[in-house]
Design a protein around this nucleic acid. Structure first.
Length: 285
DNA sequence: AATTTGGGCAACCGCCGGCCG
DNA sequence: GCGGCCGGCGGTTGCCCAAAT
């Protein structure tokens, strides 16, 4: 390419826009349209490059931009669309009226991605471990325990975006079903009636898969509470049951790395995360 | 109260592809 | 077909501010 950066010329201002600059740009575009962005700043009397003007207009000054926090519905859409489209922020933005690609990108990187990672990482690792162990032994459950939980955490792989799609390939219909199922991601996941582990089958597997794309806030203390309190009612509830269905609130809200004690635990985690929504046999605790 | 840390967000940078002469 | 211009896009940076220490 070799084309010089548009702002290379000296004398062009960079950095945050002032109110006065905003007014000038807005007034000019309202009266004349933006036309040629490169020529615009000169015509409007701004000491900015055209690119900067365009960005300011597109991301901030346009009258049709919706300001303020993203709604739950918008967040769901972003997660779903990102799964479907990847990092094509402009395409995603086009499907969210009033939202800019930059805004969506920011929301993704600062908020939604972390939520996905928080929930997904232990599962990834569990699956990784499972694969490793399967390559070493045919036994899916063996008790050798050379890897500490510290190692487990330090060896966590980076999450690949495609992984999420592979594991929870939630499509639109699934998203619809979750919406219809009155799944309330705003609810505190530890609160009743969404008990941490229960034996009913209220939640379909498609619902679970879809909900995995919604990922509400995680309460990291939850699993510690479940697994560390030997005499807790929750633990005894688990022990008393032959099988459970892993409910959404468990999938989404809870784990603690500290609760991963050994490789048997890892196997449990593997089952937990890969068979959520199914009726599963409980391991021995 | 002062300092550090981390999150949120606006803006910048470099690359790409389409258009046009 | 080629090269330059331009708009658009996605990744990244850096500032600001609030929360934590």
């Amino acid at each position: 390419m070799g084309r010089a950066p548009c702002c290379e010329k000296m004398g062009l201002k960079k950095g945050p826009w002032t109110r006065e600059e905003d007014d000038i740009l807005m007034n000019y575009i309202n009266q004349n349209g933006h036309g040629n962005w490169r020529a615009l700043p000169k015509l409007a009397g701004l000491l900015r490059c055209g690119k900067s003007c365009r960005l300011r207009w597109m991301n901030y000054l346009r009258p049709d931009i919706k300001r303020g926090n993203f709604t739950e519905e918008e967040e769901h859409s972003i997660i779903r669309l990102h799964e479907e489209l990847g990092n094509r922020w402009s395409v995603i933005a086009a499907r969210l009226p009033g939202r800019t690609d930059n805004e969506i990108k920011n929301v993704w990187h600062t908020y939604l991605k972390k939520r996905l990672n928080k929930t997904c990482r232990p599962k990834m690792h569990a699956i990784d471990e499972k694969a490793d162990k399967k390559s070493e032994t045919n036994s899916p459950l063996h008790s050798s325990s050379e890897m500490s939980s510290t190692d487990v955490v330090s060896n966590l792989p980076e999450m690949d975006e495609s992984f999420w799609s592979e594991v929870f390939s939630a499509d639109d219909s699934k998203m619809d079903s979750i919406e219809e199922s009155n799944f309330d991601q705003t609810t505190d996941k530890k609160s009743e009636p969404n008990s941490p582990l229960h034996s009913s089958s209220e939640l379909s597997s498609s619902t679970t898969a879809a909900a995995a794309t919604q990922l509400p806030e995680m309460d990291e203390s939850f699993w510690s509470e479940v697994f560390s309190a030997e005499d807790s009612s929750v633990t005894s509830d688990i022990s008393a049951a032959n099988s459970v269905q892993i409910p959404l609130d468990v999938m989404e809200t809870s784990y603690s790395f500290d609760s991963i004690k050994d490789e048997d635990d890892m196997d449990f985690w593997y089952d937990l995360f890969t068979r959520a929504g199914e009726l599963i046999q409980l391991p021995e605790f």
